[in-house]
Write a protein that binds this DNA or RNA. Sequence first.
DNA 1: CAAAAAAAATGACTAAAGTAATATATGCGA
DNA 2: TCGCATATATTACTTTAGTCATTTTTTTTG
Lengths: 210, 210
Amino acid sequence: MIKVLLAEDQVMVRQGLKAMIETDEEIEVTGEADNGRQAVALCEKQLFDVAVLDIRMPEMDGIEAAKVIRSRFPHMKILMLTTFDDNQYIMDALKMGVSGYMLKDGDTESLIRSIKSALKGGLSLQDQVAAKVVPELLKTEEQETVDPTLTPRERAILKCIGEGLNNKEIAERLGLSVGTVKNQTSQILDKLELRDRTQLAIYAIRHRLV
Amino acid sequence: MIKVLLAEDQVMVRQGLKAMIETDEEIEVTGEADNGRQAVALCEKQLFDVAVLDIRMPEMDGIEAAKVIRSRFPHMKILMLTTFDDNQYIMDALKMGVSGYMLKDGDTESLIRSIKSALKGGLSLQDQVAAKVVPELLKTEEQETVDPTLTPRERAILKCIGEGLNNKEIAERLGLSVGTVKNQTSQILDKLELRDRTQLAIYAIRHRLV
DNA sequence: CAAAAAAAATGACTAAAGTAATATATGCGA
DNA sequence: TCGCATATATTACTTTAGTCATTTTTTTTG
């Protein structure tokens, strides 16, 4: 039997959710809370497999509660429940490793499916949520294009600078003289309209050369 | 009626999928292809709403096909279908903006749900896939902790260095003398066991001070 | 208030970075 | 093979960065 803790401040909604969840005979709601603080308190008295937490609650909100539960009862899986697909909340929740982020307007089945999936290590994201959050996450991944007028050699040097090497080390690694490295560096500075190697290192990192 | 293009090289599997999809009376498979090239060719003759593409196909694989379809027929939604939850494929697919990444072992319903969701702008990720890919995406987000022995002033200087300022500029911005900035910089280098400001800039960026 | 601690400044120095003009190779097409 | 372009080197020079010992100023605190 899967033991679920349900935290939601609106009693009607909570009862609805409870009934909904318990239509599945493998799941039982063995604890109910009005707010995050109560939820945490319950965790200290009883054992649960999954916590279903509303994001917005008085006293202690769902994110805070999730944080506490995560650290004190690491075996528990956490599903966040919300009315809004607020971007910042989603990120915060995902960062702390919740097992799902559900909109309340979803159907019965999907909540039940998520509870079971959570226990198997899955992460349930409703399609609308995923559509919003994945591009956001990918944004940091995409690299800006580096100046195409840079020669391969110049790129190599730029990469070295981005690794924090000094001219002597770069010369050794690339089999050049220190003077050449300096000259090339000047070239690169010219092309990229930057001033010194520190700015080059920043450029290299921001353009994911390193 | 939703028009679906189904590309999958194994005929048996394809027929199975087709039957599966067409249990829903709103959806119709109006095109079938053995490989990516055929799929693209079909798109040029017929109109489809959604393309369901197997990742691994002869001639032109699903990723390639998706890329072409994405650019030539941007109104079409694309769902990737795969046996394996291969990380690299997932990333590639997500980057090009597919509407779903499904494992073949999923149930009938979920594929149908995904097709409909795709048309509404949703992104379907199965729980196992999401559980794998989201932490991967978050990894780049999480900041490493900066050395706690740094004083606020030192942090400020480190941040400036990370922005590519030289000592004079830092002195002006923080209302210090150039000499002080140099001294402080030496301090920071000592604490972080680094050699020069270029390495400091790299440190600052990697630790998200800038 | 006065001693101690912390923060900021100075000056003198060395090392490294960056600039610029010029020289020397090295490869490649006419 | 000549000549031209490109890559690499050399040299000499200026500027900036970084070190260190020491001093001044400010802040803290007994």
